[in-house]
Simulated scan of single mutants.
Amino acid sequence: MTADTLLPALTAAARHAAHPATAAPCPCDAGDALLADRDDGTVVRHGDIVAKAHAPDTDPAALALRLSVAAGLPGVLLSPLTPASAGLLGRRVTLWPYGGPVDPDTPDAAPWEAAATLLARLHRAPAPDGLPPMRGPAKAARAIARLRAAGPHPAAVPVLRAWGALPGWARAEAPMPDVTTLCHGDLHLGQLVRHPAPDGPWLLIDVDDLGVGDPTWDLARPAAWYACGLLPTDEWLRFLTAYRAAGGPAVPADGDPWSALDVAARALTVQTAALAVAKSVAADRPLDEVQLAVVDACDRMSSAPPELTQGFAT
C-alpha cells in the first residue's frame, strides 16, 4: 500500500468522523492537513478530528488495551473518540480530537513542568492486566538495526560501542528492572497537546509505545539532552523538580537522580545518534551540530563510568 492509496482513505475517514450524517463532498470549510507521515504512523486532520493509521505490524489486541488506558486516564492522556480501532487498507486506524501542539518557535515557553507532572501522574496510575511491555527499548534496538543496515560511516563506530556497553534490558534483550509501572514509552515535547485547542490543559498523546516497564525511560530523553549539553540546566531542573513534586517514582525524591537515570539516558542518546547517522547515510549529507553532539556523547560514554553525578557530557 502506498501513500497515494492510504492518504485519501485516511482523510475520508477523518471527514466522515467529523460529518457522519453527511455524504461527500465535505460540507464545511475546514481544510485537510497531513500532520505526520512516518513508517510508524500516518496522521491527518480534518477540522477538530484527527485520524491515525498505525504501523502495519500493530497488534490490534495490544492497541485496544492501550486505547483503554487512554480512555481511563482523562486529564493525563488525550482520550480517543472511539473505544476501538478500525481496519483500513490493512492498517489499524484510530480517531482523536485535535489538540494544539507545542510551538517549536517559542522554546522558552516549552511546557516542561506540565510534561513532568503528567508523567508522574501516569507512572502512579495502575496498569491494567495484560498490558504489554513499554516499547522504548525495542525502538532503540530498531534504531541500531537501521544504523547497521545503512552502511559504513565513521560515526557508527562510537555509537555501536556505546550500545554494546548498555545492559541487556536497555537493548531489549532482557526484562526491564521494573515490569509493573505504567509508562508512556516515547516521551518528548511533541507528545503534548492542549485540548481543547488553543488554551486547554496539556495532555499526553500517542499510545503506540505505552506499556509497563521502567519509568526512567520516560525521563531519559530530556536527561540525555541535558547530559549532552543540548538542554539548558534551568529547563532540566524545571522538569526534574516538577516530576519530583508530583510524586514521580522514577527517581529519588531528592538528591542525585543520575544513579537512577544514567542507563536510560545513555540508551536514548545512542538511539538518537543511531537514527541521526542512518539518516545522514541515506541522504548522503554530513551530520549537523546537534547530531554531532550526540555522537560525541556516545564516544565519551566509553571512557566515562556509569552513574555520573553530572551526566555523561563532561
Rank of each mutant, 00 (worst) to 15 (best):
G248S: 02
R38L: 06
M1G: 06
A84C: 07
R142Y: 09
S259H: 14
W258E: 11
R171K: 13
D262Y: 01
P97S: 08
A250Q: 07
A274M: 10
L182V: 13
R124F: 04
A150Y: 12
A110W: 15
P154Q: 06
S302D: 14
A297C: 09
H19M: 10
A36M: 01
A250P: 03
L189S: 12
D218L: 12
V159P: 03
W163L: 01
T181F: 08
P249K: 08
G151E: 10
T106K: 08
A51T: 02
P27L: 12
P107R: 02
H188V: 05
D39V: 14
W217T: 06
R161A: 15
K139W: 08
A149M: 03
V207N: 03
D4A: 15
A172F: 00
E289V: 11
L35R: 09
F312I: 02
A283P: 01
A36L: 04
A33W: 02
L268T: 08
E113H: 08
V44C: 11
A141L: 04
L292E: 14
E307K: 10
R92V: 02
T94L: 00
T42M: 06
L77P: 04
A265N: 08
L119A: 15
P249T: 12
A110G: 05
C28D: 13
W96D: 01
D178A: 03
R124D: 10
Y226S: 11
G87C: 05
R38N: 06
A274T: 07
R124G: 09
G151T: 10
A127Y: 13
G151K: 12
Y98H: 13
G87R: 09
L67Q: 04
A297H: 05
I49T: 15
P198W: 13
R15T: 13
R142F: 11
A245F: 02
P97K: 07
